[in-house]
Simulated scan of single mutants.
Amino acid sequence: MAALGALAPLSARAQAPAWPTRAIQMIVAFPPGGQADVTARPLASALERVLGQAVPVVNRAGAGGIVGSASVARAAPDGYTSLLALSSLAMLPESERIQGRVPAYTVEQLAPVARITADPTVLVVPANSPWRSIEEFVADAKRRPGAITYGSAGNYSTLHVAMAMLTGAAGIDLLHVPFQGGGPALTALLSGTLDALASGPGPALSHVKEGRLRALASWGRERIPGFEAVPTFIELGYHDVEFYIWTGFFVPVATPAPIQARLREALRGLCEKDEGLRRALDAAGSPIAYQDGEAFERFFREDSARLVRAVQRIGKVD
């Protein structure tokens, strides 16, 4: 009997289906060019090498991230559909409730596998704008309430909440212009149809270096690599203006534990040892800030609670 008992785990493993045997979709709930997309593409390429299957990045944009996130929450929990999400993941269901709608998904439908990056946002304006400091920006906004526009990835998105924190702390009124993602908002800023944007550092970095955009301040507790000359809002006396765009890897909550463990193992190995991935994310201005297991679950729970409170402070948006 003891021998049979010892063989049982081996038999179970032998009968378990092999995974992966086909492509694993990585859903990005935003258009190309935004922070999630900037992280997803080199990560997917690296995962392909480790898992031995294609990992296509699928941009499924809509409703500020709701459409793509909901599609993964409802997907078959077989390990072949994943989500590379932003910190807005928890804010969007709460925004739906505030608007009087039934949320298209809840965070309980998704299992947090690993955090990949965690970047503070940075306030950028066109290089030909009149503002060379946050002091000038705030002073102008106070002189012209509602005249200065800023973009976001949609109502209640990370970029919207970050700017709402600033407008509340500075006592200014700006005109919010929502887009379908951070990429389109950044394009609008570059074209001159927007005045300002709270951007992830990765998408903005090359444009700042090329002299097309000017960075005024960042939402981090410390200055951002690549933006060393840019002060933080905390340095400037806005002590409650602190915000991060993080990217995290999620799967449907019922995805079998062995598959989640395999994904976690692959992601951890890549983030710790893959120099190509590290260089790609560093070059994009979005360095690796890896977490998994209980640490990421705790971070996700605490950060989500803080962001949900911020959305509740914004209230209903007409």
Rank of each mutant, 00 (worst) to 15 (best):
G226N: 09
Y290L: 15
E210G: 05
A188P: 06
V241L: 14
F296L: 14
A217Q: 05
P258Q: 12
R262S: 12
G237Q: 00
Y244Q: 08
I224W: 04
Y238D: 10
P231Q: 15
T193V: 03
S199A: 06
L281W: 03
G285E: 11
A204T: 04
P231A: 14
Y244W: 08
P252S: 01
D292I: 05
E222H: 06
L216A: 09
F179G: 01
G200C: 11
R264A: 11
L186N: 15
W219P: 01
L213Y: 12
K209Y: 03
T193Q: 03
Y244F: 15
P287Q: 12
F233C: 08
P256D: 03
L174D: 13
G192C: 11
G211A: 10
E235G: 04
G220H: 12
P258R: 03
A284S: 07
H207R: 06
E235L: 11
P287K: 04
E275N: 00
G220L: 14
T255R: 12
V241F: 14
G276I: 00
G276S: 06
L205E: 00
A280L: 00
P287D: 03
I234R: 06
E228K: 06
D195T: 05
P231I: 15
R268Y: 01
W246N: 14
Y244E: 10
D195V: 01
F249T: 02
A261D: 15
L270G: 07
P252L: 02
T247A: 10
L270C: 08
A204D: 04
H176W: 12
A261S: 12
A257L: 13
F299L: 12
L216M: 08
T187V: 14
P287Y: 03
E297W: 00
D303C: 06
L236C: 01
K209Q: 09
A280Y: 07
A254M: 08
E297L: 02
G202C: 03
R278Y: 02
H207L: 01
L213S: 07
F249S: 07
A229T: 08
G192K: 13
Q180I: 04
S218N: 15
G276F: 01
V230T: 15
F296I: 14
R301F: 08
E294L: 13
L190H: 11
L175A: 14
F299T: 09
V177H: 04
D303H: 02
H176P: 09
L205P: 03
D292T: 00
A217E: 08
A257N: 07
P258H: 13
V251I: 10
H207E: 12
R268H: 09
E302I: 13
P178R: 07
T232Q: 05
L175V: 12
L190W: 00
R223H: 03
A283H: 10
L190C: 03
G269F: 11
T193I: 09
S199K: 00
V230C: 11
G183S: 04
A283I: 02
E272Y: 14
P258Y: 10
R212F: 13
T247F: 01
L213F: 05
R262V: 13
P287R: 11
A229Y: 00
A289S: 13
E210I: 08
